[in-house]
Amino acid sequence: MLAEFLQYLFTGITIGATYALIALGFTLIYNASHVINFAQGEFLMIGGMATVSLTAMGVPMVFAVVLAIILAGVLGIALQRLAIAPAKQADVVTLIIITIGASIFIRGIAQVVWGKEYHVMQNFSTDQPIQVFGAVLNSQSLWVLGIGAVMVVALVLFFTKTLIGKAILATSMNKEAARLVGIRTQMVLMLAFMVSALLGSVAGIVVAPITFTSYDIGIILGLKGFVAAAIGGLGSGVGAVVGGLALGIVEAMAAGYISSDYKDAVAFSMILLVLFFMPRGLFGAKVVERV
């Protein structure tokens, strides 16, 4: 009984941590620009696929990971510079559509470069699973959770302790005022894209040994990450983490106790319920329109 529950919980937390990292990426860009970046899933895919192909070329794992993260970061900057920045005057909806276009473009390139097959990545440490009270925990899950936690702490420090982080926060609160005190908001926007690309690629890399990776893995994981962000309240960092974990756990419990047929239905009814009663999500900021 307990073993069963723990098993579902482990499964849920692992996948939930991934959702949380993706949701954080959404949150970052949303805060900086009110744009929902639907290419977030593609950063995840780039992270995993680049690592796999680099290791296949004989690059040691650690370097491959670093290179893949850098590649994703560059891609994030390129996305902002080449696709978002030129449409400066466009409204948010147009920008969101641009990110959808960009995601299709990136996926297309990846398909040509890396092919359509699924690829395996080795576990970071042992393949041997860990036994906890009769439940089994994949050692990679610990990596996902650990790295997820490190990323969250790093983000918190980045936003509260560094000038750049504070600049991003300031821009998200009031763009005009930020510009008046000398913050280069375009620069901030670019940084936001870069950081969220880094986050996405890290998520993609740590989770790849569990889920495999392929050129289209970003679609569904990106969507789930968005759902997590929306449940938590778009724009809230805590919300993204809580939303991601909650979504993952609810999915796993539904698959285990009810039926895997209803797993996605349960997850999506959850977002309906939350948005119905708390339209701004669990931790969404109250918006007061000043006249």
């Binding site: 996948i15 889920t211 698959a255 039926s259 797993k263």
Partner: peptide, 20 residues
């Protein structure tokens, strides 16, 4: 008799069900 959807990334829950 359990199922999973094509985009699922972890089937441990379903398999636990069978194991039990």
């Amino acid at each position: 008799d359990v199922t999973y959807s094509g985009s699922d990334t972890d089937m441990t829950a379903q398999l636990t069900n069978i194991r039990n």
